[in-house]
Design a protein around this nucleic acid. Structure first.
Length: 513
RNA sequence: GCGGGAGUAGCUCAGCUGGUAGAGCGACAGCCUUCCAAGCUGUAGGUCGCGGGUUCGAACCUCGUCUCCCGCUCCA
């Protein structure tokens, strides 16, 4: 697929999502707010259905997983403990010629490594020259080249450290210039100013500014689970291994937030932290890897549209990490991450809070800080995946086209449309009767406007799996036709059977089958 | 932030060498219709992203500005 074509498909999906009430750009009447989106009448249903399905799959189907809904605001120390305060304050700098962006601290660190390499080379050279008589310790202490480089490293590190601690961006830039660091792409030293990038949004707690305290909007939901570990452990009668699941908003000041609802500054995560005995973490890591992949397949995603991608470089809190990637219109991108977080978070919280965050294991007769396997999926990304997987512009045999969203029935916003064939002869009244009965089980849609074909296509466009049509025969035989969205075929069934038939077809147990 | 593209009706877009806005689809109301968007009638909806300049006159030329989309580093 060409890049143009795939870009067009994303554009089509964005237009369709807006036109049919799935996703609207935020604050559109004020020219919009970049990379923020609102979910419309059908979007909110789709979102809720995906969320419910995840919750049921994780909490309802696993006796050893319980739910939690922790607040977005958390004690500031939380983020000190988690490492977010220190690890996600990246100074960024651009090379004006190559247009490439770098982390200023990484550039400087790399430069320091280069200096160290120089020393190593000098030592190797000398070792060759002097052979067996070579005294490495002596050489390191006396060789002028080595000493000069050593001095440079020490000086640079001191400057670097001081600049980082003082948050002095101008000084960081000056270090880059003084070290004569060049862009590996363009080879030039044409650098922009260094700018601080803060991952976390901060805000003030307290109505009076003077008395207020800066707190953060959580950048991940996980920490709410960790700080409640003891509370849940003490009240849920769960024993290790067990998990805590949570769905909620998280906020990150992304450098660039793009690609529709794929990467936004405000987003929703569906996370589960699974606490295990140390030493068994890889076993559970692999189990959750497979379990989560199977879940994605159950959404009707093509097997070829999903793949694992191991992290080469893992985050500061993890010892293993893998992404589940989905083939979006713009390529394979991460939709879920599975991390082995070790005992990093609980240990950190234990240290900072002074509370013992441990589990007494009766089998081992000892206490330990549990290890954690995290599954973390982006709800908004899943919505986009479901949308792009479902969106189809079909060419029909009769030469016409139709746009249809082939959602798995259990995810569809509207489960059934109730349509009187014509708007007279008592058909609307009969259709209303059916509507009033079915609406207690499912979200249904009543429509009597325009030709029946037009109404079918309207429902196709929002992914309604079933259209129930009341015709003249219905008045005497109490039967209706039920039209299948995907095959467009119809079946005549008794009204009394509708609840059962629709109920079975939209049952989430059907997922993946 | 840098580079590229684009802003005209809800959506997709047209609008000539500048002469103060149009289509299709959609929406709404009604008519007609016994099953797959294309029958008929009517209605609503736009200070052409915003501001300045040139001009008798700007959607169109010019300058500035804003917003959105795509790419780059970060991540669910």
């Amino acid at each position: 697929m060409s890049k143009d074509n795939s870009a067009n498909i994303l554009q089509e999906i964005i237009s369709h999502a807006k036109e049919y009430g799935f996703v609207f750009p935020s604050s559109e009447i004020y020219d919009g707010l970049g990379a923020v989106y609102d979910y419309g009448q059908y979007g909110v249903e789709l979102k809720k259905n995906i969320q419910d399905y995840w919750w049921r799959s994780m909490v309802q189907l696993h006796e050893n997983i319980v739910g939690l809904d922790a607040a977005i605001f958390m004690h500031p120390k939380t983020w000190k403990a988690s490492g977010h305060v220190d690890a996600f304050n990246d100074p960024l700098v651009d090379n004006k010629d190559s247009k490439k962006r770098y982390r200023a601290d990484v550039l400087i660190e790399e430069a320091i490594v280069k200096m160290e390499d120089k020393i190593t080379k000098e030592v190797d050279k000398a070792a060759k020259k002097f052979g067996e008589t070579f005294d490495k310790a002596m050489f390191l202490q006396t060789n002028p080249n080595v000493l000069r480089n050593k001095e440079k490293i020490t000086a640079t590190e001191a400057r670097f450290k001081a600049a980082l601690e003082a948050n002095d961006m101008a000084e960081l830039r000056q270090i880059i210039i003084d070290l004569e660091i060049v862009c590996p792409i363009s080879g030039t030293r044409n650098w922009t100013d260094v700018r601080q990038f803060n991952l976390m949004f901060s805000t003030q707690v307290g109505a009076v500014a003077d008395e207020s305290e800066t707190i953060y909007l959580r950048p991940e939901t996980a920490q709410g689970i960790f700080v409640n570990f003891l509370n849940v452990l003490n009240t849920s009668r769960q024993r290790i291994p067990f998990g805590i699941a949570q769905v909620g908003k998280a906020f990150r000041n992304e450098v660039v937030a793009r690609q529709f609802i794929f990467r936004t500054r405000e987003f929703e995560q569906m996370e589960m932290q699974f606490f295990v005995r140390p030493g068994t973490e890889m076993e559970w890591y692999n189990k959750w890897k497979e379990t989560r992949m199977a879940w994605h397949k159950s959404l009707g995603f093509e097997e070829s549209g999903l793949k694992f991608k191991d992290h080469v470089k893992v985050a500061h809190y993890a010892n293993a990490a893998v992404d589940i990637e989905f083939n979006f219109p713009f390529g394979y991108k991460e939709i879920e991450g599975i991390h082995s977080r070790t005992d990093f978070d609980l240990t950190q919280h234990q240290n900072l809070s002074g509370k013992k965050l441990q589990y007494f294991d009766p089998e081992l007769n000892e206490s330990y800080v549990p290890y954690v396997i995290e599954t973390s999926i982006g709800l908004n990304r899943t919505i986009l995946a479901v949308l792009s997987n479902s969106y189809q512009n079909e060419k029909l045999e009769d030469g016409t086209e139709r746009v249809v969203l082939k959602f798995p029935p259990f995810l569809a916003p509207i489960k059934a449309a109730i349509l009187p064939l014509v708007k007279k002869d008592g058909l609307p009244e009969k259709a209303r009767e059916i509507m009033d009965e079915l609406k207690y089980d499912h979200l249904c849609f009543y429509d009597e406007k325009d030709s029946i074909g037009k109404r079918y296509r309207r429902q196709d466009a929002i992914g309604t799996p079933f259209c129930i049509t009341v015709d003249h025969d219905t008045l005497t035989d109490n039967k209706v036709t039920i039209r299948d969205r995907d095959t467009m075929t119809q079946e005549r069934v008794a009204i009394s059977e509708l609840r059962r038939i629709v109920g079975e077809k939209v049952d989430w147990r059907k997922a993946g089958r």
